[in-house]
Design a protein around this nucleic acid. Structure first.
Length: 280
DNA sequence: GGGCAGGTCTAAG
DNA sequence: CTTAGACCTGCC
């Protein structure tokens, strides 16, 4: 992959495994949307716009410094997905579905944002999750204006949310999840749950730690660990994954399946496949 | 209108 | 240790 820099635009060339549409629409993130033939969204307090033609991707809205500091990691650009796909290919079930999923990259989102987003995801649907997350940002996130004058909002900080009461969240229409979001913010802000420590933990230990937060069960914890901490050995199991495991492997349990440490990628591929093909 | 959606919590057997 | 029910809200 080659990286080119020009005035406020970054160009990625010759990428094996980066499909914008699949990456943003596979259900791992909630703040990126289709816009003007590409995608647009907020991460790390920046509004970015991306466009893809073939194996070329243009990113605007950030400079070289932010790219090096945050977005190389955010888009997981250092990782060799060709190698991952090769390793996952020796699973006979995964082999035929890899071509469909190829191009999905696991985004390294901000830990607190991922945690709160997946708390909101519980017993919910994706359009509404996105709506709630956006309202949360508009209501309590820092307001910014992009270079071309667009207003947008960063994800709120733990401190800001920790100062609120659950009732204050009624504006975001999150329902029973209000108190979970506040509990999460307070435990993170106070250090009762240390995200820095979680970042260094195994999937098992990290999940145990995150589950100290109300509204965080094993599935939400695994999602936060995979999408917010880059812990690729986590394998979040939601209803879709259970269905697709049953359908393709004949059982709901993934114990005994070896994904060479890329369990999270395997899970994402399976999830994408299940939703794309409406596996019931 | 009743059912349902990237689950979790609680109270029961 | 497993399992119903409840839980907000919005869209079908």
């Amino acid at each position: 992959m080659k990286t080119g820099f020009s005035e406020n635009k970054i160009t990625l060339c010759g990428i094996y495994d980066f499909d914008l549409k699949k990456t943003f629409e596979c259900g791992q993130c909630f703040r990126f949307n289709e816009a003007g033939g590409g995608y647009e969204g907020v991460a790390h307090g920046k509004l970015l716009r991306l466009r893809q033609t073939g194996d070329k991707i243009e990113i605007s809205g950030i400079g070289r410094r932010d790219f090096e500091l945050f977005f190389k990691s955010f888009f997981d650009l250092e990782r060799d997905y060709e190698k991952i796909d090769r390793e996952l290919s020796d699973d006979p079930v995964l082999l035929p579905i890899i071509p469909q999923s190829r191009g999905i990259r696991i985004l390294r989102q901000e830990p607190f944002e991922a945690l709160v987003s997946f708390i909101i995801s519980a017993s919910n649907n994706i359009p509404r999750i996105k709506k709630i997350v956006e309202l949360l940002c508009e209501s309590f996130g820092e307001r910014n204006v992009s270079a071309n004058g667009r207003e947008y909002f960063a994800f709120p900080t733990p401190d800001r949310l920790a100062a609120l009461e659950p009732e204050d969240l009624s504006v975001i229409r999150a329902g029973f999840r209000d108190r979970y979001i506040i509990d999460c913010a307070r435990k993170v802000a106070s250090g009762r749950v240390s995200l820095e420590k979680v970042a260094k933990m195994s999937c098992e230990d990290g999940a145990r730690e995150l589950m100290k937060i109300d509204g965080v069960g094993r599935k939400v914890a695994d999602c936060a660990l995979l999408y917010g901490f880059g812990n690729f050995s986590c394998f979040p199991k939601d209803v879709w994954i259970k269905r697709v495991l049953k359908s393709l492997y004949g059982r709901e349990d993934n114990a005994g399946l070896d994904f060479h440490g890329y369990d999270g990628v395997a899970q994402q591929y399976l999830y994408y496949y299940a939703r794309l093909n409406s596996i019931r």
